[in-house]
Design a protein around this nucleic acid. Structure first.
Lengths: 125, 125, 125, 125
DNA sequence: GTGGTCTAGACCACG
DNA sequence: GTGGTCTAGACCACC
């Protein structure tokens, strides 16, 4: 896996996990890869995965069964949506609107890109 | 002025300057505040303003007349739009579309917020 | 049975056994549940129960009759009180007093809660 | 500084900081020692102090001024009391009451120890 | 096997 | 100077 330069790896690992859940690749109730396993898969230090799992645990997306591993909580998807929407509405969206206004970009252009994006996603499925 | 946690202050200072220009508060050809003055106004370290001006100079938005100060270049607005659009289309927008897709946010919601945003901007003018 | 996060499960299992004895639910001289039985009842790994019984054996609260099972020793209650009081006075209480002092909690508040606690216990009997 | 065996060092460092505040040795609004400084003072790895500060920042006891250091928030004492009281009432107190009941310890004994504790504290002041 | 913690040492962006 | 991040490697308790 490749990581973006401008965001901390542990944060991207956490996002990776949430995406697996949101895309239905990992299911609520299931065990997720162990710290060492995911670290090996993603070619990062176990410490970094620990930090990512720690964040997800705080957000009540995953939970630790001692001595066994981490499991996806049954209401993980709702939690992810709640956190994500809060962030989107409070931070991302205001930035987006400001950029659109200042750069003189119309909503039609965004709508078009969004359609293209969704089409591409469905193709790769 | 208050700064967002997730972005470097010098970067937000640079954005502040470009916004003044885009909003027509500071005009091309005019002199902008001295490093010390802006640092004092925004309550930041002068070092930080130097770095912001440095970036804007690299982007050919402002120019330094030695011993006098920094001036907004005549084609600053075009430069800002070019840089801004590139960044927006290449980096910000893809992230946003992904969030919208995963969080199940429709384009209509964005369109509505955008209208509200534009209305509010015009009121404050 | 639910377990507290901050304490090892085997330790809580051991506490569970001592409580059954102190509350008179299990009597000195009697046989206690087999490792497998208790593990099944409490939904824990048999390994964990083994460890708990091991500790209680060391503290001379229970004793193993090979091939038959574990039995509560006749002086179990005295042993439990001795161990418990030592731990309470030497470790738990000092921490608690410090917390009470720093958080500005009065002894009256504790006394009141204690009365309520005792009343509730007697009701459930 | 010496650390207890049964509690993580980072947690004890966090407690150390809160105690300095509660005892009035460090004041709200003031800067606390830098990560490296405290790590050196307490003879621990800087990483460990980072983790402690991270927790305190989450609890809104301290706040980071970028490039300068961590500062005690003005309402730190209230925050500490709130967190502490919640923990005490929800976790420590129930344990305390149970121990008192099972070990047959009276409230008078606790009261006496508490008085002794407070007297000793005042002497060392 | 699992996660949790700690150290040592390095590099980086930021102010 | 400040904090933030990452790695490598080790040890531990627990299940």
């Amino acid at each position: 896996m490749e990581f973006r330069e401008n965001e901390a790896i542990y944060s991207q690992v956490a996002s990776f996990v949430t995406e697996q859940i949101m895309l239905g690749k990992w299911l609520p109730g299931d065990k997720i890869p162990s710290v060492r396993e995911l670290a090996s898969d993603l070619q990062v230090n176990p410490h970094t995965v620990v930090r990512a799992y720690d964040i997800l645990q705080t957000k009540e997306v995953i939970s630790n069964k001692r001595g066994i591993g981490f499991f996806i909580l049954t209401d993980a998807i709702e939690k992810i949506k709640a956190f994500g929407k809060e962030r989107f509405m409070g931070q991302d969206l205001p930035e987006l609107l400001k950029s659109m206004y200042l750069l003189d970009i119309g909503i039609e252009e965004i709508a078009e890109k969004f359609e293209t994006y969704k089409t591409n996603i469905n193709k790769t499925k």
